[in-house]
């Protein structure tokens, strides 16, 4: 087995014009308009592809239930993400401390990045039941691995001479961790968190497919079974908006906390 050896790479920045949020928003509006016009002009059956106006009408009439679904999925994803980040950072720190632990487990952590570990989700739901917990656990373990790997690589990036300097000031292990190692690792931790946001959303939604009573995954699944295409599109758009909002929140936090690092 040749396990992937590289750490989770930084997501290459979306190049050129697309990086701009305003342009992205304009693109969305243009696409929705084109979609509306095309569906009307070509007289597509709404059962195949409903016009956005119909999708928004469905969203509006089902707004209470849909808001509940967004809330549930967001809660599951956030809970999982938070736990994944905490455990990930803690394991990254432990790896940096205990060389043997790293050599024993890191290969598996890195290999997990090349495997659809979401397949274990079915088993997780079996273990943790149909409630919020199982989805949060799935989101946790999906976001955990990249955060752990990148915390370690971030801490490894610390120059040993800088550790030495702090030691000459009389700093202990914890002070070196807080004042030097974690701040240095923060950019690469954030890179992993940006990746983890998407994974946590996917974890929550797919977890809901294995059994749940509420959430965006449930909206998508029931719409599929009922062949309710407007509802399905409503679910897709809301998933996109929720995921993008979560991602944007992380990017804002990153700008606030690691402004000093170039690739923000």
């Amino acid at each position: 087995m040749s396990a992937p050896s590289a750490p989770v790479p930084a997501v290459p920045g979306v190049p050129g014009v697309a990086g701009n949020a305003a342009i992205q928003l304009i693109a969305l509006v243009v696409m929705l308009a084109a979609w509306e016009v095309a569906v009307r002009a070509l007289d597509v059956s709404p059962g195949k592809l409903p016009p956005p106006s119909a999708v928004f009408a469905t969203m509006w009439s089902g707004r209470v239930a849909l808001a509940g679904a967004v809330g549930t999925t967001l809660y599951e994803a956030l809970l999982g993400l938070a736990a994944g980040i905490v455990f990930g950072v803690l394991s990254g720190i432990s790896f940096s401390r205990f060389r043997l632990l790293e050599r024993m487990l890191l290969p598996y952590f890195v290999a997990s990045q090349a495997v659809p570990i979401i397949a274990f989700g079915a088993i997780i739901v079996m273990w943790f039941g149909n409630g919020v917990a199982s989805k949060a656990v799935i989101a946790t373990y999906l976001s955990f691995f990249p955060v752990a790997v990148n915390t370690l690589t971030g801490i490894r990036r610390v120059n040993p001479e800088e550790v030495g300097l702090l030691r000459t000031f009389g700093a202990g292990t914890m002070e070196i961790l807080w004042k030097l190692q974690l701040p240095t690792a923060l950019p690469s931790i954030f890179t992993a968190v940006r990746l983890a946001v998407g994974l946590a959303m996917v974890g929550a939604i797919v977890g809901e497919w294995f059994g749940a009573s509420q959430g965006l995954g449930v909206v998508l699944l029931t719409a599929m079974f009922d062949n309710h295409v407007e509802q399905l599109w409503a679910g897709i758009l809301l998933t996109g908006v929720t995921g993008t909002a979560l991602f944007a929140a992380v990017v804002l936090l990153q700008r606030k906390f690691v402004w000093w690092h170039a690739d923000g």
């Binding site: 697309a18 342009i23 998933t239």
Partner: peptide, 24 residues
């Protein structure tokens, strides 16, 4: 310039969410 933003928009939704639609 014309197409990349559309591509990015489509992919800003987690791809699994399109799953039920693809099945239909």
């Amino acid at each position: 310039r014309a197409l990349l933003p559309a591509y990015v928009t489509i992919n800003s939704v987690p791809m699994v969410a399109y799953g039920p639609l693809a099945i239909i």
